[in-house]
Write a protein that binds this DNA or RNA. Sequence first.
DNA 1: AATATAATAATGTCTGATATTTAGCTCAAC
DNA 2: GTTGAGCTAAATATCAGACATTATTATATT
Lengths: 255, 255
Amino acid sequence: MTELEHLPHAAADADADTLALVLAHTILSGQWASGDIFPRELDLCRHFDASRNRIRNALATLSSCGLIERTAGRGTIVRDIADWHLLDPNMSLWLAGLDTPHPQLVHEVFAFRLAAEPYVSELAALAATAQDLAKIESAFNGMCETADDPEQRNAHIDYDIAFHEAIYSAGHNLVWRQMGLLLRPSIVALIQRSHHRVDRLDDSLERHRRVLEAIRMRQPAAAREATEHVLARTAADLELSGRPTALRPGPLTPL
Amino acid sequence: MTELEHLPHAAADADADTLALVLAHTILSGQWASGDIFPRELDLCRHFDASRNRIRNALATLSSCGLIERTAGRGTIVRDIADWHLLDPNMSLWLAGLDTPHPQLVHEVFAFRLAAEPYVSELAALAATAQDLAKIESAFNGMCETADDPEQRNAHIDYDIAFHEAIYSAGHNLVWRQMGLLLRPSIVALIQRSHHRVDRLDDSLERHRRVLEAIRMRQPAAAREATEHVLARTAADLELSGRPTALRPGPLTPL
DNA sequence: AATATAATAATGTCTGATATTTAGCTCAAC
DNA sequence: GTTGAGCTAAATATCAGACATTATTATATT
């Protein structure tokens, strides 16, 4: 029961990455249920007019992202969303490239950012080097310069991502830094949904500026608070229901 | 200048996964510096007496974990630790299998756990289902049963990992759940370093029990505090310098 | 000296054959 | 009837060798 029908026909001379992207999008957009059996290699070869080698490479990429599971003899089955490797760079790009973002993912990634990002900003305020600050600042300047021009929407998105990613990096922790990969899908989804009214954009820029200033001044508490305000604006633009789960630890007892 | 010398000889009939593991370990254990050029495919074929296909599969796995970067014409170079995909399941297994854990990684992963895990426990206390509780409890029981017997050290480690992982899962957030992949290397490193004195083990079990109880009773604050105590014990066993960076958010202002 | 060009060396791809694993089936034995 | 061994079919995994593409380096040419 290989449902080859709802696979799009990619461009004839699609390279391996493009092929992987096309296949990944069919999964990320929810066209398969968890446990479904994926088309066989030879069928995919015919469908995309590609060599078995290319198909296998593409499938290996999907497999390494946890989208499918392949076993000799059985075939290829589609894995559950809980098994996806959200922090693989491929996933970051694929998810950001969806025409309609995955609703559950947008929601849960944002819940994560809401809890984690204020703390990450604190870390950045404590650990940022001059180089880190330069990166954050240049990203912010880029955001400002590209804010008004609708032509430069993509550039603005990239600067926005670079801004937040630079903060994740400035914390100088290998684990937290990787979380920066979640930003692209999250921010792209945000821009797609929000309405780009000029006043909101000005307000958003001002909130970002305050984060930058707090980190520059080495004020963790202020950085936390400013980041919470950025996220609050984001939540409003995403039209998410308030603050799903906020990070509210009680006082730390001496250990 | 292909430094083939410090590659171990794998078992002759090593399958693709074993090959990838052997190659990965040479990188994870720090035998290459960032930017070093990795041996060429054909040299690896000779060295391991494997077909080029197998070698390429293994290298593709390493590449998908961010350990190496391959470009046609140039060759294969070793990537920096900052580029490693710490949350790939392969990495979880490989890192846990090192004879001597990577010191920087152990430190930074623990810094992350110290900040994140109390919050994750809060989430679990709020969202855990009966099934989640059953998993946590059965893992805890396994820890108790295997605590005394040195023969069952590996089983004890697995139950320990399962306990914490079940808590990450119980938060029912796709992002936080993935962080559970960091547990295996972290906990294995812990067990390898700690001295397994009976009184410390009893104390550790008691601290775990309190986390379980707090989650069962749906008491987020208690769960947070109990988890902090578990981590404090872990820090002591790891002989880490106090609490590198603790999560201490200020009060949330109304947004 | 700067620029174009050719040679080289590495990874990427194609093709077709073969090996291995898994699921399902038949059929005999208890 | 149920169990088990063995066979068959179908899928992925691997092998082998030729060829294509890319990036570097050396070599000419102006």
